[in-house]
C-alpha cells in the first residue's frame, strides 16, 4: 500500500506491507535507527516518536495508519550535535541518560509532555513519563532534566513527591 509520510521534515512516498510497524518503517526502511524497540507489549516506550506533535509508541502503530502524518524522531529534534534541542541539552546537563537505549523514546515523550504541560510539577513529570521505562538512571536525573527543560530549577523543586496510594479522584 502506498503511503505518504513526512519524517523530520522530509516527505516520502513509499509502498509498504500493511503489517509493517511504524518503528520498522523508521528503522529499516528509512534507516533512522535512533528509535529503538525494547518490548513487545507497548510497555517500555523506547519506540516513542511524535506523530503530528503527539507522543506515540511507534511499535503499536501500523505504517499505513501514519499515512499523511508528520513524524518527528530524535534525529529530527536537534539542529546538530553542537546545538542540542533544549530537552536534549537538559538530558545531557543533568546526566539523564546512561546506556542511551531508552533515551530517544524518553526524550520524545518528554518533549510531548511539555507540549501539553509546559510547567509540570515533579509528580506530573513522573506520571507523564510512566509509559517509558529506563533501567539505568532510576529516573532521578531524567525528572530533573525535564524540570530543567521546562524552565524550572530542579534544585528548587519541593523536597520530595512520593508516589500516591491511589490514582483515585473525585469531587
Amino acid at each position: 500500500m502506498k503511503v505518504h509520510i513526512t519524517v523530520n521534515g522530509v516527505p516520502a512516498d513509499t509502498d509498504v506491507e500493511p503489517r509493517l510497524l511504524l518503528v520498522h518503517y523508521l528503522r529499516d526502511t528509512l534507516g533512522l535507527t535512533a528509535t529503538n524497540v525494547g518490548c513487545d507489549t507497548s510497555s517500555c516506550g523506547a519506540c516513542t516518536v511524535l506523530v503530528d506533535g503527539e507522543s506515540v509508541k511507534s511499535c503499536t502503530v501500523l505504517t499505513v495508519q501514519a499515512d499523511g502524518t508528520d513524524i518527528t524522531t530524535l534525529e529530527g529534534l536537534s539542529p546538530s550535535p553542537d546545538e542540542l534541542h533544549p530537552m536534549a541539552a537538559a538530558f545531557r546537563q543533568e546526566h539523564g541518560l546512561q546506556c542511551g537505549f531508552c533515551t530517544p523514546g524518553m526524550v520524545m515523550a518528554a518533549v510531548g509532555l511539555l507540549e501539553e504541560h509546559p510547567r509540570p510539577t515533579e509528580r506530573e513529570v513522573r506520571e507523564g513519563l510512566k509509559g517509558n521505562l529506563c533501567r539505568c538512571t532510576g529516573y532521578h536525573n531524567i525528572v530533573r532534566a525535564v524540570l530543567r527543560a521546562s524552565g524550572q530549577d530542579p534544585d528548587a523543586a519541593p523536597d520530595l513527591v512520593a508516589p500516591g496510594f491511589s490514582t483515585g479522584s473525585g469531587t
Binding site: S42, G45, T48, V51, E54, K57, A109, K130, S169
Partner: peptide, 19 residues
C-alpha cells in the same frame, strides 16, 4: 460528566491515550 475525563486520565500512559 466529570467522571469520564477523570477515568480517561488513568488509562495507560500518554502515548496510549493519544491513540
Amino acid at each position: 460528566c466529570p467522571l469520564l475525563p477523570a477515568v480517561a486520565r488513568t488509562v495507560g500512559d500518554p502515548q496510549v491515550r493519544h491513540r
